[in-house]
Design a protein around this nucleic acid. Structure first.
Length: 802
RNA sequence: GCCGGUGUGGCGGAAUAGGCAGACGCAAGGGACUUAAAAUCCCUCGGUGGCAACACCGUACCGGUUCGACCCCGGUCACCGGCACCA
């Protein structure tokens, strides 16, 4: 058969659509399987060659589960709010809604041309008011529970684009898009209190099946540390509280440092005799961008506070206080106790300012460098702690602090609250109204969705306010609470909002009364298998776990984790091994590949390209091997022998291959599953192939190359969809050949291979091995000290010269 | 600096409850078919030595455990990803 992939693919894509072959049953007695991929952002560039890799992988899993009799949900939608669309709209004077519509149409066509078995009846779009109604609803619930709050904080401001940037849009201190300088500006922002969930976000990782590296990355990002808060008093009678993870080193404190932004500086202004130079330092620190602050980390700067000293609570020693920008206001208390003997940063600062360095844990050389790796050491120079191990000292000092009212144990997290507002047009409006009398008042639920107003110009404003601030008709409203004139919030939500709960909409996409029905949640949730990029581990994945826990707390969902299993795919790189990009000129367009080789070859190659979890370079020649494989199968279909049972020659290979492919799909080892099928047709070339064998082959291959295999199935006379056939089963007993080959070693070196019956006894194996000519030669003149026989694998003779 | 990951032929990659290293594919070389080319089919394909049977070496590097190590343990180096003055 000539493999006319263009017509074959069109034909079957149409039939799948007509028959709704991949639409999930909303209610069913069957066991459910919910497979999820990260829904794409429909960019103007169209589908990237990297998109099909994770999509095909979960399509394969879904198709197999469906063939195993599960009710499978494999949905798709569009994460369509966002900056690139808005910028494109501004540049080309097309409304973002229109841009989104165009891009979605293109993406949809491209995805369908790959033959991905999505349930298109449940397509969702985060920019659809019927969708973002519920995004707004969840936000209001958070506001109601005190998890959404407004506060003034520094944001990234691009001096050229005149707009606020998200942290991820700032690369090496400059604007990702225009390369201009990014400065800090104080702005009032809506925040979500994700920090309230920090501990649960760590603890509940124990209950889910995520890749270990995903868990580790989230745990590191949340950054839990255990320590103590210690109260120091000043000579003026004030209290200065610090956070430390090493309270055991309290006797080694030789000075203290406050962050330049610490409020006590102004509070103590009249006691600080050099307040002007302190203020000058603070101003200089504020001017520095984050980039500069970290770039200059080798060179510590600071100013000593004159006129104020601290007193060490454990020994009454007077110690100086400094202001330095190496201490951050946003972590701990914004002030530290400095132990230069056992902290690298404090050591550098002490050397620069010629401050004393005291050793309190023995074992290092504090003249040369700070001794930080000292968790197993013994305390010295430490009063009542001297002689204790570090571990015991920690316990003792915490007890002492609490008994003397000088401090208490404390847990801190690096995780910060989520900056949730954007001064941008193309996002969900924040459904809040500001009333002079009542403050921030939520828009009543009955008025949701609060629609994004139609406006003509969405350019960012000079003053950093949202483009919506120009839309006076929309802004001016009445207070839902007291009826007085009031103004709407003009900021919109970030792109991460709509994607934080989208999987819940798939299971009941048209519900108007709730974000999703209780029955749907009970049947479909949690997501059984979620695959996505590692780059989302500490963003989307963490955000959506947080939102889900919140929904759990208010009783919307009955489980606290949304995803039972999380895996991650590697990137597809350019042929030169570098990341694909226009500027590198190494971009591969999926449309071109489909045109030249067909969708089945593209799918197969992206699965064969290498370990699914690792990055892999594209190869224009290697893909030909996958096309050749499909060509050979198409040609083979003309030479099938009759036969309802597997032939004796192929039987064990059939069972082995079924087992291998079945297990490899579950283990995401798609590359070796394909290799096994390639090996099988190599055997068919030698032994011939009958109907039963060919049918099994195309059934196993169907999830990988669905179009060609449907065509071949039809050619064999089956009018039903192969996609609805039962997945082949294997018989473990038949995967074993009657005769097996055993390697024979002498002193660990391979001397020969012998064939023995699968059920041969150890003595038989030993005898057969010894009878082998090469082995016998190697044993000549030797004393056999020991014989190791591993049945089914190896025989090793341990010998010594006679 | 810290955390995580990875080092295997010319290339992508197989093989881990420790048991024949290099499956499968690409590229390359040789041959068949063809007027010719493409496609297809057959053979070779880690290195060194040898006409050959065969021998020795070989999974980043050094060392250890073991009858046996790509796999386990200790140390070193390189590359990739993430975080980064988090006290």
């Amino acid at each position: 058969m000539f493999y006319d992939f263009k017509n074959i693919e069109k034909k079957w894509q149409k039939r799948w659509q007509d028959e709704k072959a991949f639409c999930a049953e909303q209610k069913s007695d069957k066991e459910k399987f919910f497979a999820l991929i990260e829904f794409p952002y429909p960019s103007g560039a169209g589908l990237h060659i990297g998109h099909p890799r994770p999509y095909t992988a979960l399509d394969i899993v879904s198709r197999k589960k469906r063939m195993e009799g599960k009710n499978v949900l494999f949905p798709i939608g569009w994460d369509a709010f966002g900056l690139p669309t808005e910028n494109y709209a501004i540049k080309n004077h097309i409304h973002p809604r229109q841009v989104t519509e165009n891009n979605v149409a293109r993406f949809k066509e491209q995805l369908q041309s790959i033959g991905l078995g999505f349930d298109w009846d449940r397509e969702i779009n985060t920019t659809d008011p019927n969708y973002y109604k519920w995004t707004q609803w969840i936000f209001l619930k958070m506001f109601e529970k005190g998890l959404a709050y407004k506060t003034t904080m520094p944001v990234n401001w691009c001096t050229s684009c005149k707009c606020v940037l998200a942290n991820e849009e700032v690369v090496n201190g400059v604007c990702e898009r225009c390369g201009s300088e990014v400065v800090r500006r104080e702005k009032s922002q809506w925040m979500l209190k994700i920090t309230a969930y920090a501990q649960r976000l760590i603890d509940d990782l124990d209950t889910v099946d995520f890749l270990p590296r995903v868990k580790t990355q989230q745990i590191n990002w949340i950054g839990r540390s255990e320590g103590a808060e210690v109260d120091f008093t000043t000579t003026e009678g004030e209290t200065l509280t610090v956070y430390t993870t090493r309270p055991d080193t309290l006797f080694g404190v030789t000075y203290m440092v406050m962050s330049p932004e610490h409020p006590y500086i102004e509070k103590w202004a009249d006691k600080i005799s050099n307040i002007e130079s302190v203020r000058a330092y603070r101003q200089e620190a504020a001017r520095k961008s984050d980039f500069e602050r970290t770039e200059l980390q080798k060179d510590k700067t600071g100013v000593k506070l004159d006129g104020v000293c601290a007193i060490n609570p454990v020994n009454g020693t007077q110690i100086p206080i400094f202001v330095s920008d190496y201490v951050l206001m946003s972590y701990g208390t914004g002030a530290i106790m400095a132990v230069p003997g056992h902290d690298t940063r404090d050591w550098e600062f002490a050397k620069k300012f010629d401050l004393p360095i005291i050793e309190v844990v023995a074992g290092g050389d504090i003249e040369k460098e700070a001794f930080t790796d000292c968790e197993t050491g013994i305390m010295v120079n430490s009063g009542f702690l001297t002689g204790l191990s570090v571990e015991d000292a920690k316990v003792a000092i915490k007890k002492w602090l609490e008994e003397n009212g000088k401090g208490h144990t404390k847990v801190n997290y690096k995780l910060r609250d989520w900056v949730f507002s954007r001064q941008r047009y193309w996002g969900e409006p924040i459904p809040l109204v500001y009333c002079e009398k009542c403050g921030w008042v939520p828009v009543p639920e009955s008025e949701l969705p609060l629609r994004l107003p139609e406006i003509d110009s969405y350019e960012p404003t000079d003053n950093g306010e949202s483009p919506l601030s120009k839309c006076t008709d929309w802004i001016n409203t009445t207070c839902p609470h007291c009826g007085a004139p009031a103004k709407r919030e003009t900021d919109t939500m970030p792109q991460w909002a709509g994607s934080s709960w989208y999987f819940l909409r798939y299971i009941d996409p048209t519900n108007n009364d709730a974000l999703t029905s209780k029955e749907a949640i009970d049947y479909w949730m949690p997501v059984d298998w979620y695959n996505g990029g590692m780059e989302h581990t500490t963003l989307h994945l963490l955000y959506s776990r947080f939102w889900h826990k919140f929904l759990y707390d208010i009783g919307v969902v009955p489980m606290s984790e949304p995803y039972a299993k999380r895996t991650s795919h590697g990137m597809i790189l350019g042929e030169n091994g570098e990341k694909m990009s226009k500027s590198r000129g190494n971009v591969i367009n999926p449309d071109d590949i489909i045109n030249e080789y067909g969708a089945d070859t593209l799918r197969l190659y992206e699965m064969f390209i290498g370990d699914f979890e690792k990055a892999a370079p594209w190869s224009a020649s290697a893909i030909k091997g996958c096309k050749r494989f499909l060509d050979r199968i198409a040609a083979m279909s003309d030479n099938i022998k009759p036969g309802k049972e597997y032939s004796a020659a192929n039987e064990s290979a059939m069972h082995k291959t079924i087992k291998k492919v079945t297990q490899d799909i579950e283990g995401m080892k798609f590359n070796t599953a394909i290799a096994a099928m390639m090996a099988l047709i190599n055997q068919f070339d030698k032994n011939g192939v009958n109907e039963a064998e060919f049918k099994t082959l195309i059934t196993l291959l169907n999830p990988f190359a669905p179009h060609l295999t449907e065509e071949l199935n039809e050619k064999m006379g089956d009018r039903n969809l192969l996609a609805k056939t039962q997945w082949p089963v294997y018989d473990e007993a038949k995967t074993v050949e009657s005769t097996i080959e055993i390697a024979v070693q002498v002193n660990g070196k391979l001397k020969g291979v012998v064939a023995v019956a699968a059920d041969a006894s150890e003595d038989d194996i030993k005898a057969t091995a010894q009878a082998d000519e090469a082995v016998a030669a190697a044993l000549q003149g030797m004393n056999i000290v020991k014989v190791i026989v591993i049945r089914g694998k190896i025989v090793n003779f341990v010998v010594k010269p006679q």
